[in-house]
Design a binder for these strands. Structure first.
Length: 888
DNA sequence: ATACCTACGTA
DNA sequence: CGTACGTAGGTATA
């Protein structure tokens, strides 16, 4: 049996992407950031189909470099009729190329040539070298490439999901001429899309007839005199066109290229890179398809040996053990408590069922039944400082706590490491990380099935994966991130766990009273609002409000959003100015009342048996390094309004405690900016002890600090804060309701006095563009991929994020360091007082009787000393029976 | 039921 | 056309 020919697949990237662009609805393929992806999606989808159906052994995609080539030099009007490329298409091609590179697919382009010339060259060489060649292009000129070894796949009108196959026979059937004769026909007929006019009155029928008779254009023109009638005259008159067309539509088959067919062997994809790119493009189903096809390719032996080797390690056999055997095993495997072991806790219905423990070479399953006496070894090891690797350690710690078990020695948390590597991504499961970083698939039972088909992995084997995964993650982390991991994030795990377990006492009575009062109020306001418009509507429905405001009341249109026109507070306030109406005021009041009421209700249902609310902190919840709070969110409890503060007053010092203590950093982000920018003016402002905004205002407006008016101070304050967010003059003008020109002037004045700030902010973005990431004072990184984007919206969004990240992230580092110190000192001093909440720049404590002074000292020192900046860290303290009263 | 959008609370 | 979050209700899809 003859050996099968290798298959060389050659794709015209631009033409296929363009076809896909028009085949798929633009609006259905947009990322959350506004990047259009329909062309990329269509292209990759088509590509995956081809990989699956044709199983190419060799593969390349060719792109045009620009719309200019030797053809436009020869004939300037070539392709001149083509309109502007749609803006939604621009920018998709570089991303497509990136995706292809991640899939380890070669892309080719050549200055002065079109993609089709590259295809022609490779097809010719491929056929000569014994390949079965498949050419995919939407350009009819490529028909000339078809022969016994070369087949053309051409997208039909419906787009790129179905490709029509043209081999020699199919071409003859369709056009009545041999493939190599197609350009002769095209030269006569002309090609509108390339702006190549043909002979007037000559269509496909006539051209085919002539070529069937004469074979080539050259022959035909030699016998042009023999052609009668108007078309014959036209041919003679316009033979220049024909000659030119024929010259231009001949594809070049000997372009000099860096690769020959043999260099285009299909390679294994880079799973990490593919996931990164596809994540960014928000391609979920395509990602699955890529990995599925890739898996099949690996089975078929197409993937090179190197990629195969890394998956060759197999899990150790799980041994079940308890008590003395376990004690000995733990000691050996951990080298007397010095070597980290993976730890996985198995639970059923929240009850601990057992423990999987593993080193790199051995794994053990330890079944757990509470109350049995023979667990000393296990309990000792768990509670000891012997290092352990876990996934989502905080959750495990809390689970164990509820089972009455203590856990210490958390030395690594794969969820944290993964977040430090890619802080913008949402938390992944252990299985997800193993798949991503180790390229192996863990069986995960389908939670929707009562009797799962796939049996879950033994926790002991999961623990073994933890050890491998932690090593892989550590290897990928840079030194700065490693120190953040080691010095901040990992030690913070038990601290946050304790805060969550402690919770904070909340008065159900205060909330209940507030709820009913707001309820009555909201109902009254609603009635009055209905009276104003003569009917009842759902005031909480933006859609119904739009009807009332813009149709019924005929108000001027506000700024538009995806579902119509905005009815948010800002828009309503603007409306009230232009077109005052009592309904607007009532609506705003109703919003206020119901919003606070909704918060109150959420809190009420969150109060536990212990009269306390236990939030959950998400340590991997933000891209900058902040922690977030959920279920319920205690980081957005109202404070700005009077009723808002009533909510705060429901948060109390618990039974047996004297008072609440709040401690916050004042203007920490501005201080960090002063430190990072080394701006002398700003540094002096903080060292002077003068009110920051007053100081800055005095400099900007050229008056004495005492003469800074409240208006001036407000403007300065808005600008100072806005700077750290990448605020524009436009944005500042909107916020302060002043002219753009005035805002611009204000900013100019600011930078004239505090020039180093501007230089710093500019430098951050520039550096990030070079490095691909930003860094905080303590070494935390945040990667950015869109700083070089040609899409302005994407790029400028990324720039503002990059500008803000070192500032917000450093502030997060600092308060986390303070929390670690304070927690350690409270425990070292044996105080009963405890840290309860963190709200980004504020900490809330519960003070035990008689400990106020000691605690105050620890907190102040811990917070002020959390970083050595070129300006002091100012800490404000306050105490009181409730959170509102404890504010200062 | 689920996914998206708008709106809005905090730092 | 200002960063970072979480939650809830309405609405349109399945």
């Amino acid at each position: 049996m003859p050996e099968e020919k290798p298959t060389l697949l050659l794709i015209d990237g631009h033409s296929l992407a363009f076809r896909a662009f028009y085949a798929l609805p633009v609006d259905s393929f947009v990322t959350r950031d506004g990047q259009h992806t329909n062309a990329i999606h269509g292209f990759i989808s088509m590509l995956l189909n081809l990989l699956q159906q044709q199983k190419p052994t060799h593969l390349a995609v060719a792109f045009d470099i620009s719309r200019y080539s030797f053809r436009t030099r020869e004939y300037a009007e070539y392709k001149g009729t083509r309109g502007e490329t749609p803006p939604e298409f621009v920018g998709q091609v570089p991303l497509l190329e990136e995706a292809l590179h991640a899939m380890n697919i070669r892309t080719l382009s050549k200055e002065d040539f079109e993609a089709d010339d590259i295809l022609a060259t490779l097809a010719t060489r491929g056929a000569a070298e014994g390949y079965r060649v498949l050419v995919v292009s939407g350009d009819r000129d490529t028909i000339q490439l078809v022969d016994d070894d070369v087949t053309l796949l051409y997208p039909n009108v419906r787009g790129v999901s179905e490709l029509k196959t043209y081999d020699t026979d199919a071409v003859i059937e369709r056009y009545g001429i041999r493939p190599e004769q197609y350009p002769e026909i095209a030269a006569l007929v002309g090609e509108t899309s390339d702006n190549l006019p043909g002979v007037d009155k000559v269509g496909e029928k006539t051209a085919v007839k002539w070529i069937q008779q004469y074979g080539t254009v050259e022959e035909l023109l030699a016998h042009a005199d023999a052609i009668t009638g108007v078309v014959g005259q036209n041919l003679r008159d316009q033979q220049d066109r024909v000659v030119r067309n024929r010259r231009l539509n001949r594809l070049v088959r000997d372009v000099e290229l860096p690769y020959g067919p043999a260099d285009l062997e299909r390679e294994a994809i880079d799973p990490t890179a593919v996931r990164a790119v596809f994540d960014r493009l928000q391609f979920r189903t395509l990602l699955d398809r890529v990995f599925k096809i890739e898996g099949a390719a690996a089975d078929a032996g197409l993937v090179d040996a190197e990629a195969g080797e890394s998956t060759a390690i197999s899990a150790p056999v799980v041994r079940t053990m308890i008590d003395e055997e376990l004690a000995k095993w733990l000691q050996t495997q951990s080298k007397d408590g010095t070597l980290p072991l993976g730890l996985r806790i198995a639970t059923v219905g929240g009850q601990v069922e057992g423990f999987g423990i593993a080193s790199l070479t051995e794994s053990a399953w330890v079944p757990w039944a509470p109350g049995r006496p023979d667990y000393t070894a296990l309990e000792q090891w768990l509670a000891s400082d012997a290092p352990k690797y876990l996934h989502d350690a905080k959750r495990q710690l809390k689970t164990l706590h509820s089972a009455g078990l203590e856990l210490a020695g958390v030395a690594g948390d794969t969820a944290l490491s993964a977040w430090l590597l890619r802080p913008g991504n949402k938390a992944d499961s252990l299985g997800g990380l193993v798949y991503y970083y180790l390229g192996e698939t863990l069986p995960e039972p389908d939670p929707s099935q009562l009797v799962p088909e796939t049996e879950a992995l033994n926790p002991a084997t999961e623990a073994w994966y933890l050890v491998r995964l932690q090593a892989e993650l550590d290897a990928r982390l840079d030194p700065g991130s490693l120190s953040v991991q080691h010095d901040i994030e990992v030690p913070l795990v038990p601290v946050l766990a304790r805060m969550e377990l402690q919770g904070i006492t909340v008065s159900a009575d205060v909330l209940g009273e507030l709820n009913s009062r707001l309820g009555t109020q909201a109902a009254e306001i609603a009635q009055r609002a209905y009276a104003e418009i003569g009917r009842e509507v759902n005031l909480g429905s933006p859609k119904q409000l739009q009807e009332v405001l813009f149709d019924q009341l005929g108000m001027p249109k506000t700024r538009s959003n995806k579902t119509g026109y905005s009815t948010d507070a800002q828009a309503l306030a603007d409306l009230q100015e232009q077109h005052p109406h009592p309904f607007l005021e009532l609506l705003l009041q109703h919003r206020d009342a119901t919003k606070i009421r909704q918060i109150v209700e959420t809190l009420q249902t969150a109060i536990g048996q212990d009269a306390r609310i236990h939030t959950t902190y998400e340590q991997t919840g933000s891209a900058t390094g902040r922690i977030s709070s959920n279920d319920p969110n205690l980081q957005n409890i109202p404070v700005k309004t009077e009723v808002g503060r009533e909510v705060r007053s429901a948060f109390l010092a618990g039974e047996g405690f004297e008072t609440l203590l709040t401690a916050d950093y004042s203007q920490i982000e501005m201080r960090i900016m002063a430190h990072l920018s080394e701006d002398e003016g700003l540094i002096e402002a903080f060292r002077s002890g003068e009110d920051l905004h007053r100081f800055v205002g005095a400099r900007i407006f050229g008056v004495a600090p005492a003469d800074v008016t409240p208006t001036m101070r407000t403007k300065v304050k808005a600008m100072s804060y806005g700077l750290a967010y990448g605020l524009s003059a436009f944005g500042l003008s909107k916020q302060l309701r002043i002219e753009v020109a005035e805002a611009r002037e204000l900013m100019a004045d600011y930078f004239a006095r505090f020039g180093a700030v501007r230089e710093y902010l500019r430098g951050v973005v520039e550096q990030a563009r070079v490095d691909g990431y930003t860094t905080t004072i303590f070494g935390r990184r945040r990667p950015f991929s869109d700083l070089g984007s040609t899409n302005r919206v994407l790029r400028e969004n990324a720039e503002r994020q990059a500008l803000n990240s070192p500032i917000q992230g450093s502030a997060a580092d600092i308060i986390k360091r303070a929390m670690l110190t304070i927690d350690a000192e409270i425990r070292a001093a044996g105080l009963a007082s405890r840290m309860l909440l963190q709200v980004h720049d504020e900490l809330v404590f519960e003070v035990a009787p008689g400990e106020r002074e000691a605690l105050t000292g620890i907190v102040t020192a811990g917070m002020a000393g959390a970083a050595e900046l070129s300006v002091p860290l100012d800490v404000q303290l306050g105490t009181g029976p409730n959170w509102d009263a404890a504010a200062h």
